[in-house]
Design a protein around this nucleic acid. Sequence first.
DNA 1: GCCAACGTTGGC
DNA 2: GCCAACGTTGGC
Length: 141
Amino acid sequence: MAHWLFKTEPETWSWDMQKKKGAKGEPWSGVRNHQAKRNLMAMKKGERGFFYHSGKAREIVGIVEVIGEYRPDPSDPTGKFGLVVVKAVGDLPKPVTLAEAKTDPVLAKMTLVTFSRLSVQPVTDKEWQHICKLGGASSRA
DNA sequence: GCCAACGTTGGC
DNA sequence: GCCAACGTTGGC
């Protein structure tokens, strides 16, 4: 099962806001980058991803699950881009920071470090397990 | 607040 | 189809 990472400015869409949506989840809209779009299209229902705060916080704060697969994004006037629906499934009791990832040999090569501008990224199994462990979360699914 | 990296746009 | 100019993102 593939894993992912969703990047967001907490001022725009924060982990708290995502959690308040509960089991209903929220469409991950506004992606306007083709590589990010490809990642969205590859997502399957039930797959999980990290929730990352960019900007001031710069840390992975939680885990989300894909509950709705790729569909057109109504907020895109060109109709080229789409979205998936994600719901919060749990906190990372101990958030993993970008600074930490940079100095960690297992995480130093992850997309978050090497290509920070990509807003929706793949995460390898190895990285997934490692971050879950560092963050004090279960790595299930 | 600055700057590097990247994507997009538009003139030719 | 190329490339310079510009806008945006995001780390520092």
